[in-house]
């Protein structure tokens, strides 16, 4: 069993605690003048996303979590799971709603996503920072209105709703920043 000592702690390190995988966000070494040293650590639960704080006695060892991020191609959704393919082994990995979460808004077939694997199973999906999606439904475009800054809702091919400028039309392709869910620009086919 691989372990990390507290003096190896740094942000990004993956640990097992209470049966769940965690990632260190912040590690603070605290030590009173002549006393016991502690590591005060902020960690993110990689399954739930919840952030907790934990204190360890310095010198303690903690079990390492077998967590890796692997780029995989998104294949399809069969109504229950989203399927991703490892680009080298071509092995397919199903991920359910809990794992995919909000990333589902931005998954387009053949796009490459980062899949977080814990003990070989997906626990998180990060879509590309930018995706290009087709608008399937929106109010008719207002020609020439490129300056007012006003927006309207538009539904894209994944079913997500994005605010777009008034001049954008149904059937057009738009670039979206998946980190904010915001419209970036129109894209020519």
């Amino acid at each position: 069993m691989a372990t990390y000592s507290t003096n190896e702690f740094k942000s990004g390190l993956k640990l097992m605690m209470d049966g769940d995988p965690f990632s260190i966000i912040e590690n603070e070494f605290v030590k009173p003048g002549k006393g016991q040293a502690f590591n005060r650590v902020k960690l993110r639960n990689l399954k739930t996303g919840r952030v907790i704080e934990r204190t360890f006695k310095s010198g303690e060892s903690v079990e390492a979590a077998d967590v890796v991020e692997v780029p995989m191609q998104y294949l399809y959704n069969d109504g229950e799971a989203w399927y991703f393919m490892h680009e080298e082994s071509f092995e397919q990995y199903p991920a359910d709603k809990n794992v995919v979460g909000d990333a589902a808004n931005w998954l387009k077939e053949q796009d490459v996503c980062d899949i977080m694997l814990w003990n070989g199973s997906p626990i998180g999906v990060s879509p590309p920072n930018f995706v290009v999606l087709k608008i399937t439904e929106t109010d008719p475009g207002v020609r020439g209105d490129t300056a007012s800054g006003a927006t309207k809702p538009a539904t894209v091919e994944t079913g997500a709703v994005v605010k777009v400028p008034l001049f954008v039309d149904e059937g057009e392709l738009i670039k979206i920043d998946t980190r904010t869910g915001e419209y970036v620009s129109r894209v020519k086919e």
Binding site: V30, K31, P32, G35, Q36, F38, R40, T55, K57
Partner: peptide, 10 residues
Amino acid sequence: DDCIDLLLSH
């Protein structure tokens, strides 16, 4: 003593 150190620092 560890407890006192912990309460002191935290």
